[in-house]
Design a protein around this nucleic acid. Sequence first.
DNA 1: CTGAAAGCGCTTACAG
DNA 2: CTGAAAGCGCTTACAG
Lengths: 343, 343
Amino acid sequence: MTKKITISDVAKKAEVSKSTVSQFLNERFDYMGDETRARINKAITELGYQPNVVARSLKLKSTSTIGVIVANILHAYSTQVIRAIENVCNENGISTIICNADDNPQKERKYIETLLAKQVDGLIVVPLKGNLEIYKKLLKQDFPIVFLDRLVEGLDAETVILDNERASELAVNHLLENGYKKIAIVTASLTDSVTPRIERINGYKKALEKNGITVQEEYIKGMELDSFDQGLDELFSLDIKPDAIISGNDLSLMEILKYTFENDIRVGKDTGLITVDEVSFGPIHSPPLTTIAQPTFEMGMEVATILLDKIKDKKLKQDSVVHRHEPSLIIRNSTKKEGEPSE
Amino acid sequence: MTKKITISDVAKKAEVSKSTVSQFLNERFDYMGDETRARINKAITELGYQPNVVARSLKLKSTSTIGVIVANILHAYSTQVIRAIENVCNENGISTIICNADDNPQKERKYIETLLAKQVDGLIVVPLKGNLEIYKKLLKQDFPIVFLDRLVEGLDAETVILDNERASELAVNHLLENGYKKIAIVTASLTDSVTPRIERINGYKKALEKNGITVQEEYIKGMELDSFDQGLDELFSLDIKPDAIISGNDLSLMEILKYTFENDIRVGKDTGLITVDEVSFGPIHSPPLTTIAQPTFEMGMEVATILLDKIKDKKLKQDSVVHRHEPSLIIRNSTKKEGEPSE
DNA sequence: CTGAAAGCGCTTACAG
DNA sequence: CTGAAAGCGCTTACAG
């Protein structure tokens, strides 16, 4: 590597002080005469000078960078939300460092530490169970942080999250309206009491009750992704089989579709199917899949906007507001008993 | 924010100099007595001290961070390769900053500049057309950079890339073996001569010729994703329609599936279909989709390993090696004329 | 309008 | 074994 040009080189070449060059870089042009300005400009382009933002960050105690830690990047939700976050950050001249905790609290912890050591100006996190103390510490020192998708038990923090109960309600009502009566719900593991899963099940129960239907506990399945086959076997071996399934998210949907495919269960005909999370292949699946879409773009925008506001306005105390977003129903054919085309 | 603890605070508390604390932080314990070491350790934990890596980076002229710029994050290829890159970087204590150029050379240029200003130690880029000069400049100053997925015309740089011609050959041979005779290839726009698209078409032509089949130019379609409908209309209005389609990548596959779905063209029966890029729903689509998988994980590992080696070993001149990776054929039912189950 | 000086939080020769 | 000093490349009062 050829050696880097620094502000000193520019100052020397333009025959001014470093201070003045710095003022130029920060566009405070009234701090210098027109010809000085021109000289500096010339020197910069001739030398191909690029400021070193590491030095700048050190001095300013701000890196114009935020960290985003998602629990699991495999969810389409994560990538979509991340894209929205990046959009608003970009527009504001903020860089983002994305980290995938891979559902592992240790990893998450390590990422938080690394990001803090890197002096990020703020953090967006889809939290995992087990790092409560760290979150608390950060909140106590008023470090800018906003949570996404999940509530943390015992923590009073600003969070952007889906109205999960409403999502289930949409699903249940839609299924009932289409003549399904024995509705099951299948989600990923409940052992870590991940908010969306818990709330979606609660919403499912409430919606059934509202419709005067008794909740059957056997119709509620929460399990690790790799034991879906077994769980679905159980479900479909019940004396009274369900006639429709609500899938908790996109990853559980994949497992369900694998299962129905392998076991020749015809979606739509043999079982209704609706999933939370819109999926890319929803419209082209046969039958096309009815889904409950999350407004991922909106949610990403909001969480980023909140964080950037917090960063700008440091005095702004952490207010522990929970921002709920509305899911929306996308009706396609997997919830039509006859499986006839919708057009 | 409560004020940050610095190395000075630790030094004061432990009653040693900053130098010694620094030696401690860098685990050079033979530079101090055992009790000194213990005192420092105590001070650090009591104060909850976290080193500031920005300051460290400034001094060391190394940020332990690399930048990754992908042309378009929407490709499954991008996200998979990124995950592999992150894995090897993580293992080596290197952070990654991911940027999505969104097929926009200006954006790519801006990202490169931002990343350089942030003093990243190296760059992995899936290049776009139009930034040749920047690449050249970086290579000339021996800045560690490795390219991925695409060759840059006029540039002699280390690149990790699929054996795209082989991918097409696999596809063509497989289709021919399964009785398809009139094979078309459909890819995203060719106007920017993106390497994989060009090479896949070349490979397609070569493979046909090798099999003694004349190339029909009408069977080769390269177009923007949003004009696929029209292009496919043309294709299926030909006097002699193709009986099989090779899809250039995952995004073009989506368009093709949308088209066949909307036009009631039965994949497998009415037209064979094979795509480069394995897709999540491949196995559960009806019919299940035959694909040509890229070894994305391997490719990500290799590109990261090469870059980290370059960074470690600065003298290592840029060697312009092109590392080709083998695609593999995953046979499923979309290339079976009868559409019968494969089991 | 311009510059000298101090300082951001580290690291690393160097001296003792 | 330990510390004082210089320096990484910036920014920003402050003085003139």
